[in-house]
Computed example of a mutant assay.
Amino acid sequence: MGTNLILVFLLSLCSISFSQECSRGLLEDVDFPGTDITFLYSPDVNHCQLLCTEHASCQFFTFVRPDWTRDDRHFYCYLKSTPSGQPKTETSLLGVTSGFSLKNCFPYPEHCISQVYKNVDFLGADYRSLFTSDYEECQRVCTKDPGCKFFTFVNANFQNERIRHKCHLKYTWTIPRTPIVERTAGVVSGFTNRAETPNPSDTACQGELFSSTDIRGSDFEMLPAASPEHCQTLCSAHPRCTYFSYDSNDLKCYLKSNANEMVTSFKERVTSGLPAHLCQLNNSAAAISSVSSPYLLLPKLTNWLMLYPASHRRTVLVQLIQGSFRSRTTPQLLRLWPFRPPSPLLPCCFCILRPYTPPHFSLPVSSSPS
């Protein structure tokens, strides 16, 4: 009886969400002034729309096109939001294109962006380079490399002859990063229990940590981190990282890249270690404890269901009940679901429903184009 009541509640939740509309259209030379959340770099308006769709708070956006002439803010993607979910005003403005998030659209937009952008450079984020015959080969290399998220290829027309045909593979973080970590009495912080590592594995591993040990040199990036285990997770997610050192005095994680040697020395309050390869770190896994009552599962199942686009939730839930639901990954949470469907659900450890993170680079900015 309790299971049936929960299903009725979830179906009602889905019905309410259907009232939200899907707006796929793009408005050329139209600005949605103000109400900015943030801005990100984007190569075109379609990518900007994906960024808005992936951002938890973004409801609509304005993209500054390459033909914008008022200043040098080309390729700026302004993510926006209002309490009503609609722009407060719309104004005509040459050189920009505006549109809406696709969160409420079905089918959900594909994250595979095969388009290339000529005479556009994705600056920074390089972790590996090689020479290829053309950009198609560079793209194939990027696609096959687990760490590569985007690339820049230097063609035969580039001014510097020495780096022509050079393929720059680039990386963007796919796990949560905190902008600042500091000790503050009276607060508790943490991460979502939904894993977002780029290559999840069912194989668990402990990882190797060396207490009171420093590895000097070979730093390529410094990040704030809450613990040595957090630092190890960051190192494991980055394709360049061969080992790391964590300073507990200032809560800083030093990612290092040197495949030739590792020279250690004694240093108090510093922990060094190695990344995990092709396994899931135990310290980053968030196991879901068994629950005897189906009502205790309701908040977790509801949160998982809300990850799907609004117009798709009813279908997912009905298929789940019928035992016909199939996804590339299925949350371990559903193993505890007391309703046993005719056919088994696909097993896995974590729910990774949207693993792709479009490349972006954040810089401070005061306001949108207008």
Rank of each mutant, 00 (worst) to 15 (best):
S248H: 12
S227G: 00
H230D: 15
C253M: 04
N260I: 06
K252E: 03
T242H: 00
N249T: 15
M222G: 09
T264M: 15
P228L: 06
E221P: 03
L255Q: 03
T233S: 13
L251D: 06
F244V: 05
T233Q: 13
E221F: 11
N260Y: 13
D250S: 12
R269I: 01
S257Q: 14
F266G: 07
A259S: 14
L234H: 02
T233M: 08
F266N: 03
S272C: 04
S248I: 00
H238R: 04
F220N: 07
C253V: 06
M222Q: 13
C241L: 09
C241F: 08
M262K: 14
T242L: 12
D247W: 14
L223D: 01
F244C: 10
H238M: 08
Q232L: 03
R269Q: 13
C241N: 01
M262V: 15
S272R: 14
L251V: 12
N258D: 08
S248L: 01
V270R: 04
A259Q: 10
Q232S: 08
M262A: 07
L234T: 04
C253T: 09
H238K: 08
A259C: 12
S218Y: 02
D250I: 15
H230A: 04
D247Q: 11
C231R: 06
S265I: 13
Y246G: 13
H238D: 15
S272W: 14
L223E: 00
N258C: 00
Y254K: 12
T233C: 12
K256V: 02
Y246A: 05
P228W: 05
C241K: 00
L255W: 01
P224Q: 09
C231N: 03
D250F: 09
L234A: 02
C231F: 10
Y243C: 07
V270E: 07
Y246H: 11
T233D: 14
S257I: 10
L234K: 01
A237C: 07
R240K: 12
F220T: 02
S236H: 01
T271P: 05
P224K: 02
K267A: 11
C235A: 07
M262L: 13
V263D: 10
L223S: 00
C235R: 03
S265H: 08
S272Q: 09
Y246M: 05
N260W: 14
R240N: 02
E261Y: 07
M222T: 04
S257Y: 14
G217F: 05
D247F: 15
H238L: 04
C235P: 13
C231D: 03
Y246P: 10
V270G: 07
S248R: 14
P228Q: 08
T271N: 09
F244T: 12
F220C: 06
R269G: 09
K252G: 10
F244S: 09
